[in-house]
Computed example of a mutant assay.
Amino acid sequence: MKTERIPTVLILILLGLNLRPILSAVGPLLDDIQRQTGISHVTASLLTTLPIMVMGLGALAGRQLRRGLGEGNGILLGILLIAFGCLLRWLLPNAAGLLASALLAGAGIALIQALLPTFIKRSAPNDSGRLMGFYSCAIMGGAAFAAALTPSLAKPVGWPAALGFWAIPAVLAAMAWLYCRAPQHDSAARQEGGRILMRRSPRAWLLMLFFGLATCAYTLVLTWLPPYYTAMGWSPVDSGMLLAGLTLCEVAAGLLFSTLLPRWADRRTPLFIVLGCLLAGLLCLIFAPQALVIAICILLGVGIGALFPLSLIVALDHLQDPEQAGDLLAFVQGGGYLIAALAPLMGGLLREYFDDLVPSWIAMAIFSLVLMLIASRLAPGSGRFHLRPGA
């Protein structure tokens, strides 16, 4: 990687690290939060579902956000909204405050995720896939840190202050973005070669469905894996460490597959590998959650960790123009996150009805088979998009 690209890599990592603590910090403390606030399983699921829904809606508006705010200002606003959302959980530790913070932080994450793909494609047009992989791994790394550290922080200071702590790295990332961003990326208005007609492009819909179902695995595990194990007698710290360990496996897998990506011109090969790991991990989670906990950690970590960046990279591969690629990823992530937002809610409803999370893991295993079927259709050069000229 060229030396002049190092600042871009660092800022992508700093921003990525702040995009999931608002979600992953909650899971290990969810039982305590429910006891102290009185929220139900369904309401608890909204702490993940609401930000992901907002992320999806924000991604769908990515083109308008890019033109209205510009990449520089929009990303800065996004990271500040995340910081304020985290702080609000300390200031208002009740059901209304938690839900409001989820919406605010979700809006911040939506801004960053809608605007960064264009920034990445323009900053490194010949290496955007690998940079997207590193950025995705940073997202998962932030989730790991939050899952591991928050329960330990909550012991001396309480869960509201522990959740509010994650405003600090968000503020640091905002300062770094102000210092490091390049002026040429702040322009909101650019001439574009043509706009993709998403509704008339079956490939765009297929990529959106693939990303959405793939992200269901991430959101479902992120929300309900710690409560699944606390229900079996694990402590919040231990369940948080389990989620952190799984997430570190995700980071390692994401980095490995992103580094090896140039070896696979046909992305279906790594996709089938990681989807097989995901399915195997879910089956272990269903049939032997305690006896095979290490295997579950590794298999789910590899499956989810590599699948997340690969699902973005596969979409990014389809177009070379930065603006068109940004529009496509906005559509893919927008609809995809709306699909993925339903997974934690599904888990909450099934747990409310069955008093068990096993039905949720079974549903995700079925989704994994559907993902394999979709992946078989993602041959290189097989996608076509309807375009209209002008900007």
Rank of each mutant, 00 (worst) to 15 (best):
G383N: 13
T49G: 10
L17H: 02
L307K: 01
Q290P: 05
R199I: 00
S24N: 14
G108N: 11
A176L: 08
R268L: 03
H185I: 03
W177G: 12
L371K: 03
Q184H: 10
T269D: 02
S123K: 11
T3W: 12
L10V: 15
A214F: 05
G212R: 00
R122N: 09
C180W: 15
V332N: 04
L14P: 08
C216V: 08
M364W: 04
L275M: 04
G193A: 15
S45H: 11
Y228V: 04
E192P: 08
A295F: 10
N94W: 05
G194L: 04
L17K: 00
V9K: 13
L197G: 07
A330R: 01
P160H: 06
A231R: 13
W224N: 10
Y229S: 06
L10N: 06
G390L: 07
A306Y: 03
S136I: 02
P7N: 07
S123F: 09
R20E: 03
L98N: 10
A107I: 10
A252C: 10
I366D: 12
S136Y: 06
N18V: 12
A343D: 05
R195Q: 12
L357C: 13
W361A: 15
A214P: 03
H386L: 15
Y337M: 06
G108E: 10
P262H: 09
L29G: 09
S123W: 07
L207Q: 05
L292R: 11
G106I: 09
G108W: 11
G62A: 15
A325D: 06
M198Y: 08
F165T: 13
L310Q: 02
L271I: 00
I82K: 00
R20A: 02
V42H: 04
A280S: 13
A189S: 15
L275G: 00
R130I: 14
K121G: 07
L300A: 11
L328Y: 02
A295H: 06
M198H: 08
R67T: 13
L285T: 15
A363T: 02
I13D: 02
G58H: 05
P380E: 00
T223A: 15
L69Q: 06
G70D: 06
P7F: 02
P202R: 03
I139G: 04
L282V: 01
P28H: 02
P93E: 11
R89T: 10
W205T: 08
M241N: 12
S235D: 08
F308M: 00
L349A: 14
A148D: 04
L17S: 01
A253H: 05
L10S: 09
C86P: 03
A244D: 07
A291E: 15
L30D: 01
G240Y: 06
R122P: 07
L275Y: 03
R66W: 06
L369D: 01
I294N: 00
A182F: 07
G58F: 10
R267Q: 09
V9A: 15
T48A: 13
P380N: 05
P183T: 09
R200V: 07
L220S: 14
D317Q: 03
G240V: 11
E250P: 02
A315Q: 00
